[in-house]
Design a binder for these strands. Structure first.
Length: 464
RNA sequence: UCCCCGAUAGCUCAGUUUGGUAGAGCAGGCGGCUGUUAACCGCCGGGUCCCAGGUUCGAGCCCUGGUCGGGGAGCCA
């Protein structure tokens, strides 16, 4: 007998087939006229497979009638058209084997809504809920869409290192990686820790971005992207930050900033279209239970062109808005969350690409404009979530880059290889970073980033 | 890291204003009813009121400190 997933068994084509399905019970409803309804979910799709368990089953009274949420079962039976509403098919069970009981007195999940705060404390079980099942499936399709998009665009998928010796990549505090004994580290004559005895013979860290390494490969292979975990040791406690998150970083030789904005727009639209096509049930769940606007918002975005607004124009818009912001607006200061929200949610009511930021608020690697005051940076801002893409054209002139590195106090010796890219056959090139969890938040409407990754890492929290 | 808010049954919460040692719904058990579908109806069991001090005849409630969680801010994706 063939094993079917719940997704397969729910399709009308399966009617008439004898099959085995396996999964976890969501709920049981007894009918006194000689059978029970079981809702079985195996994660293969949002919906449950309805099992009809007749009282004639030998273990009906002893076992089937004791099934509660969370129990795991194997069911053999016949898939039939369902006379009830709510599902096309159902399985009439011929045999039900209980694989594992779930004591209802202690099993934490019930057939009701739980708070996301509570579910976070049982992250090992929350994948069995509607919401986290839907997120896992959307996350999967999101990653697939990312790969499909870049492959179709002719990019090479490359792997950049997780462990890096760059002491600063312009993106915040880092986690140190060491095999030294922290209780009694070796010391040199000056009394400082002797890192020549560490595993790599020098201080090393978890990467905060694969960008610099991606640049080296782009300057030889053309269009590349890296996609992996990224680590930030910032003490950030917000619904939009994780200490460990996933990021896609395309890097393109011979791309100017305008090419990059176009790519970012195609990239996001490709993802949104893919998710609407591949996850209609899950997206409908998010629309009904999480945020009623998610589907409409994505569809509107697909039909419109992203606006491109320079930082200077954005400042003018904010100043002319007549709004009183908590943080005053002035040219040269970075935009605050409230400013970005005003632009995306009030003024434009759509995603916006801001570009040409003041040099003083951006990292060393961004290309200086001819005005000497701004750099070729671009951020894609979306309503509610804020920045989901940050990118730039990279500085490709050796002298200018060296000057900016000194300006920002970098240890030049660690970046000799990065400077070499400008010393030998330098080319204009650009890239950006796309935060996977931020995109997931945007498309699902989930308010807290800790609920779009299975095992969130945040300050003080590394359970599971 | 800063500023607010919160922690009461397995879960979601009320009770805090005005101190007098706890309630509802859901979940669970039992019974009823029904091709049901977050099923429905009745009964029952279930609490270290986050922790440690303090005030008081008496603290879930007031005070102090801590722990954990949430929201906002900064940093950023």
């Amino acid at each position: 007998m063939e094993k079917l997933s719940a997704a397969q068994a729910r399709r009308p084509e399966a009617i008439g087939q004898e099959a085995i399905v396996q999964g976890w019970i969501r709920t049981r409803r007894d009918s006194k006229t000689g059978f029970s309804f079981l809702e079985l979910n195996d994660g293969s799709c949002f919906g449950n497979l309805q099992i009809i368990a007749p009282a004639s089953l030998p273990n009906y009274e002893t076992e089937v009638r004791r099934l509660t949420a969370g129990c795991s079962v194997r069911v053999e039976g016949l898939i039939k058209a369902s006379p009830g509403k709510g599902q096309a098919t159902e399985m009439e069970a011929q045999k039900i084997i209980i694989l594992g009981w779930a004591d209802p007195e202690s099993y934490p999940l019930q057939k009701k809504q739980h708070s996301f705060e509570f579910l976070r404390t049982i992250a090992h079980l929350r994948g069995r809920t509607n919401t986290f099942g839907a997120i896992a499936r959307v996350r999967n399709q999101l990653c697939r869409a990312i790969h499909d998009f870049f492959q179709q665009e002719g990019f090479l998928y490359i792997h950049t290192p997780i462990i890096t010796a760059s002491d600063c990549e312009g993106a915040g505090a880092m986690f140190q990686v060491t095999t030294l004994n922290l209780e009694t580290p070796p010391r040199n004559e000056g009394g400082r820790v002797d890192y020549t005895q560490d595993f790599f013979g020098r201080p090393t860290y978890l990467t905060v971005s694969g960008q610099l390494e991606a640049e080296t490969l782009a300057c030889g292979l053309g269009k590349v992207y890296t996609f992996g975990p990224t680590f930030r040791a910032e003490n950030s406690n917000t619904p939009r930050h994780l200490a460990e998150f996933w990021m896609v970083e395309p890097e393109m030789a011979f791309f100017e900033l305008e090419d990059t904005m176009d790519l970012a727009e195609r990239n996001l639209k490709y993802i949104f279209r893919h998710l609407l096509e591949k996850c209609p049930e899950d997206m409908e769940f998010f629309r009904q239970r999480i945020d009623p606007t998610v589907i409409d918002t994505l569809q509107q975005i697909l039909e419109s062109r992203f606006l491109r607004v320079s930082y200077t124009e954005a400042i003018d818009i904010l100043l002319a808005s007549g709004r009183s912001f908590e943080f005053p607006v002035s040219w040269g200061k970075d935009l605050q969350a409230e400013h970005e929200r005003y632009l995306t949610e009030q003024h434009f009511q759509s995603p916006v690409i801001l570009y040409n930021y003041p040099r003083t608020i951006k990292p060393f690697y961004m290309k200086l404009n001819d005005d000497g005051r701004t750099v070729r940076a671009m951020d894609v801002l979306v309503p509610k979530v804020g920045e989901i893409i940050g990118g730039s054209q990279r500085e490709d002139r050796y002298d200018v880059l060296l000057e900016r590195m000194k300006e920002q106090g970098l240890n030049i010796e660690n970046y000799w290889w990065y400077l070499d890219l400008r010393r030998y056959g330098t080319v204009p090139h650009s890239g950006y970073g796309l935060g996977v969890e931020r995109v997931l938040q945007f498309v699902t409407g989930m308010a807290n980033i800790r609920d779009v990754i299975p095992f969130p890492r945040t300050p003080g929290n590394a359970e599971f």
